[in-house]
Design a binder for these strands. Structure first.
Lengths: 217, 217
DNA sequence: CCTAAAATTGAGTGATTACTCACTTCACAT
DNA sequence: ATGTGAAGTGAGTAATCACTCAATTTTAGG
């Protein structure tokens, strides 16, 4: 039901009007790709679950891979960009100087937490298929370098000025922050989704861990 | 060339004597599984690269999946167990009390760093295929809970006594430590293997990050 | 209501798949 | 040397694969 959001955003984002059957195809493909992986999924199975003839898939997508790309590509953008771009444009520039790292981390983690929570199958597909499709890796890289990296550096510099971050290279700060957050999300939603998580508490510990880890002594 | 180690250890561990052709099959399978994923790999391609008839594969492994399991299963054990077991039995019990977290982390990270460095294709296969094969997940869980978890808890308790770790639940300490270390290894060897890493420095920052993150203020 | 374009269909295609099996070759104990 | 079981072979098989296309149904403007 939350995927419906994604499908509508996919419509808006690409300006392609999706026919009802096309939306069913994408919905079914997301489900099955997440369950068994792209390579192990047959187009006949997608058609079956979508309640559609197999030929209909190929009317809209030239190849099976084309279908995958049309799903994962917008998902990458929607997952990566808000990491340190859109959402923070306001927060960063509303106040001339950032003096506290905590609200920043809180905002960032909570935001990505909600997105992942509503798009677990998409995250699974992203993680699985980026390994085997260089064009997806390149898109990730392109988006990250152009949209996320500059803002991140800016923020880190300001935080360093406010003595919130110790003597650690910016690239390393980025790596440690990202792996901790992504590690939390993957542990929470992919590795141990059934563990009785106390999410608020866990997020709070994660924020403190990053904060103290970056501050040094 | 480093995989050769793994193949020999696989021999010793399972007490199965591998014929030369069988070793070639495993070597080829590791390579191609890592490159294209299990589902996208055909047994004919494995046979071709191994320089072996396709029938030979099925002489030794009942199914293609059987071949996968016989590769990944020992790899899981060899990757997970040393995280807080074998290697630390001595270090932990030689001294009655552990008072410093740093040498512990240094030892742990360096050790897993070397293992992953020598077994990148195996790590790739593990990460990819554990998602789709519940029996692999269960083996991971079994090994982790029986071999790693108890010792880890013991160590954390001692470190807490020595005021090296703040007021954080043991499970959360485990999660944060593991994701940071595994995150580093995956970033280093899978996501950005071509980045000009200064490994020693990066390991040092990672240790300090975990240390300060867990200590609190 | 008509009609042309767009959407949908499902039987059909050649290629490829994991796996089998009757057979040959090999290693080695006697 | 010779017999024997294990190792290795590769042509063969039914199933399944991604994809095509001629025919049919649906949609929408006049």
């Amino acid at each position: 039901m939350e995927q419906q959001n994604f499908i509508h955003e996919l419509m808006d984002a690409t300006d392609q009007k999706l026919t009802p059957k096309q939306a069913q195809i994408i919905q079914a493909a997301i489900e099955i790709f997440a369950e068994k992986g792209y390579a192990a999924t047959s187009t006949s199975e997608i058609a079956k679950r979508a309640g559609v003839a197999e030929g209909t898939i190929f009317r809209h997508y030239k190849t099976k891979k084309d279908l995958l790309i049309s799903i994962v590509s917008p998902a990458i953008t929607r997952f990566v960009v808000p990491f340190f771009a859109e959402k923070f444009v306001q927060d960063v520039f509303d106040q001339d100087e950032i003096e506290e790292i905590e609200p920043l981390l809180k905002n960032l983690i909570s935001n990505r937490y909600q997105f992942v929570k509503n798009n677990v199958p998409l995250l699974r597909i992203m993680l699985q298929e980026m390994a085997f499709h260089p064009e997806l890796q390149e898109q990730y890289k392109r988006v990250f370098v152009s949209k996320v990296l500059p803002r991140f550096k800016q923020v880190v510099d300001q935080l360093r000025g406010a003595r919130q971050i110790g003597d650690i290279p910016t690239e390393t700060v980025l790596r440690l922050t990202m792996t901790t957050i992504i590690g939390f999300l993957i542990t929470r939603f992919i590795v141990m989704p059934d563990y009785p998580w106390d999410d608020e508490t866990e997020i709070e510990y994660t924020i403190q861990f990053i904060r103290n880890g970056l501050k040094g002594i």
